[in-house]
């Protein structure tokens, strides 16, 4: 190696610096490109999380007259944030209780324990959960079992003879209705 006439050491050093610079340039550029690429890759994916504060919307549950006084009935409303391919999952159930004085209470069907659908039993005046045996009174208070709180309650109002509730997200302990 040493016998062959090569570039003088000074030029070698220049070349090394030059190569190092180009390598750093290439690596930096590719890294930057990859980093920027993350925006279109992860942006849409994460958008659902940062749109968490999307405000709930008023939706119709049905005419007031369809809920007799003194009864609790299963009703449903259309998810306000639905997409066309939601299919049947766009219809969200809820329990509507109309008290004897005509006022309303609307409960989520989700058990506050782990989200299973609670069922109303008029005879015993209780909501029972089929999963782990959570029990709630007619007014949504926790009666027995593992639930950490009562049933989630929707805000509601009556507009032009129609019962409306404020809904649109699945209630959890982190974000009750």
């Amino acid at each position: 190696m040493s016998q062959t006439p090569g570039p003088d050491p000074g030029a070698e050093a220049t070349n090394t610096t030059r190569r190092r610079f180009l390598l750093a340039l290439g690596g930096g550029l590719a890294g930057l490109g990859a980093l920027v690429l993350l925006v279109p890759l992860l942006g849409p994916l994460l958008s659902s999380a940062w749109r968490a504060s999307v405000s709930l919307r008023w939706v119709s549950v049905g005419p007031v007259d369809s809920f007799p006084k003194g009864q609790t009935r299963l009703a449903s409303f259309r998810n306000p944030f639905t997409v066309p391919w939601d299919g049947q999952t766009a219809e969200i159930p809820c329990w509507v209780r109309r008290k004897d004085d005509g006022s309303f209470q609307i409960f989520s069907v989700h058990c506050s324990h782990l989200g299973c659908p609670v069922r109303w039993f008029a005879g015993s005046g209780l909501f029972l959960c089929p999963c782990h045996g959570g029990v709630y009174y007619a007014d949504g208070r926790r009666a027995a079992g593992p639930p950490p709180r009562g049933l989630y309650r929707y805000a509601h109002r009556v507009r032009g003879g129609t019962l409306q509730l404020r809904g649109g997200h699945v209630p959890t302990l982190a974000a009750p209705l």
């Binding site: 659902s48 968490a52 997409v83 066309p84 391919w85 999952t89 649109g168 699945v170």
Partner: peptide, 10 residues
């Protein structure tokens, strides 16, 4: 993030 939106669906 898990649900891709505020509710279980499409």
């Amino acid at each position: 993030l898990l649900l891709g939106g505020p509710i279980v669906g499409g």
